[in-house]
Design a protein around this nucleic acid. Structure first.
Lengths: 204, 204, 204, 204
DNA sequence: ACAAGCGGGACTACCCGTTGTT
DNA sequence: AACAACGGGTAGTCCCGCTTGT
């Protein structure tokens, strides 16, 4: 695959991602995607065997980027935080910072978009989404579990539920942000979840 | 409009809601909906002027049901709780109870489904979704505001953010529940948000 | 199904048959068929679920017409001929007469057309063709078998092979007639097969 | 043109012939043909200017092979048979032998395949088919004509019709063999035609 | 209140052929 | 001699919505 070929593929995926987040996979036609590039049908079907193939490639790319960002933030958080709890707080802080820096409206999360059209995708595709959530749960819960070994939380909670809670807060905040057309709610809700952790474990 | 006419309309809306939650509005065709009832095109277009008309009618019905349930829960909570804070806690408790009673997987929230296909809907339709969220925020924030007048929260938070947080937690939990195929996460995350309120204001 | 609906269906089948005989099923597009009627795609897919459905309906109609003509000729032949052998001779004579009356070129046989594109059709469709050939073999062979009981053929032959021979002669003659653009070969070859029967059993 | 080039060309033609006999020229795509080789578009269009060019090249190769076999059989028959009639009988006997040796089902005749999709081919291509049939008619009729000079047939027949009859019998037998999935009918029908000649001219 | 028939257009998938490169 | 990338068009399928007839 030459240089241009990869570029073409990426251009298609970029256009597809924007449209699918805005109107859903089912309502996004291939012509629609192509009209946002300077390509034609021939090019599309050279790179993707079918629309389903595009769906899979897109979510895989999205999951890869997501995991990459997550691991980068996690690495920074692990360096910056001295305790496991601090590391989680820094991690969430980095996401809060990221979301606070949003200029326009948040485009939403492709995982949730796929979840709300799950009937259109096969198991392979849905497993990609599941794995992304489980990666988050695994890494965050591990740190919280270690935190709980040294400091007992104020209320009885499980590390997994806490990890999921952070994820849920973000996903839910995306939905609110989209309907209320207010990008600021995301950062504010992440901050609230950080409050919760502070109160559970004691700040600092 | 006779009795049967209403039934037909409802049957169409029921089938549509199930399909749209499963695969999205864009991917749900009228024929698709009708094949899940025993009706034909003539019947559909007798009750709905267009597919868009169905979309609006459906979200309006959903919002009405949602508001009805909300107000019913709120009324019970207002009776059962002696303080505004307790009322909010009971309200969330009722939702937690409701979600804990889920037999199969949660079908998801139509508001979020519409949010992730916003590009397909007109302003009127989107306003219905927005109003539903604002109704929640208004009523819940009002009670929290009153709670904050008598008891200062452990950390500085706004009543609106707290109200939104409850909503976001639920919406996010729906997404997690759908992808992880685990209906129990919803109740567990609502409980966590109730923990947060307890920690903020002091339990009891 | 109303009166007009049946007409529409027949008009589609008529156009399809002509085109398929001329250029084959695979090369005949639905648009192609429709341009020979005054209908649109909507009408086509109202009457046929798919192109394959059309293929099946077409061959079934063709086989029904074919069987109808065959039984009509057979009934006349049975009345006109006093012996089983004479009945077969009259039957072939009626086909010879029919073919001699051809104005333009012979359009060919749909059974053979399907046979030469067998890879495109499912078993159900191919069974229809097979049954048509077996019907001919059965009825003609039965009469020849009876003929052989009273009169021994000059050479040892089986009634089935003889029946097949008549069919093969006609099918082969169609191919020759089409390539040589000479409709007269068909009648002449049927006559030759009648010669063969005469020589085998003695004319008379 | 090097050695490998010819091989590639032949490989394409081989794959094309198999597919066209199975599903027709119209339904056989270039990609389809290439997927049955290990080549790509570039290779195809290096050897053939267009799909039509392939059609012509294929039928010309087929006609050449056919003529080659015919002339080989004819030469042997001319040596083995002492009279023109015997020569024709031996010729048909050689074909009967050939067909009796068929292991699986008969793939059919490319001439007939083209005839049933005549609308797709230009005059040049169709002339190739016609010439093949006329070659047979010419050579076989010539021998039968000489046979009729010495021995009067039992019934008045023309040498051309007789020659065509042999051809028609084989073509028709191909169709029957394909639909009935019984390769043995071909040899049996050739034998019947040889019976006819015996009865017409007297055996031996 | 609903059924059948159909118009016209959109969508996915594929097809034939071209171009540039190796 | 062959390949990857791509253009532009067409194929089969389906979809939305209108009309006509109970």
């Amino acid at each position: 695959m030459t240089r241009t070929a990869t570029d073409t593929r990426e251009r298609i995926l970029d256009a597809a991602q924007g449209l699918i987040l805005a109107q859903g996979y089912g309502a996004t036609s291939i012509d629609d995607i192509l009209s946002h590039t300077d390509l034609t049908k021939g090019a599309f079907f050279h790179h993707f065997r079918s629309k389903k193939d595009l769906a899979t490639a897109l979510i895989e790319r999205y999951a890869a980027h997501d995991a990459e960002l997550f691991r980068a933030f996690l690495a920074r958080a692990d360096r910056l935080g001295r305790t496991p709890l601090q590391q989680v707080q820094v991690l969430l802080g980095l996401y809060e910072e990221e979301m606070a820096g949003l200029s326009g409206a948040h485009p939403g999360c492709l995982f949730a978009s796929y979840a709300y059209q799950a009937g259109l995708f096969d198991e392979v595709t849905k497993r990609v989404v599941r794995k992304a959530f489980l990666l988050w749960r695994e890494e965050v819960a591990a740190r919280l579990r270690r935190a709980m070994e040294t400091r007992k939380p104020a209320l009885p909670v499980s590390a997994e539920d806490l990890a999921d809670g952070a994820m849920a807060t973000m996903e839910g905040a995306f939905v609110l942000s989209m309907t209320l057309r207010d990008p600021s709610v995301i950062a504010r809700q992440i901050r609230q979840f950080r409050n919760y952790l502070d109160l559970l474990f004691g700040a600092g």
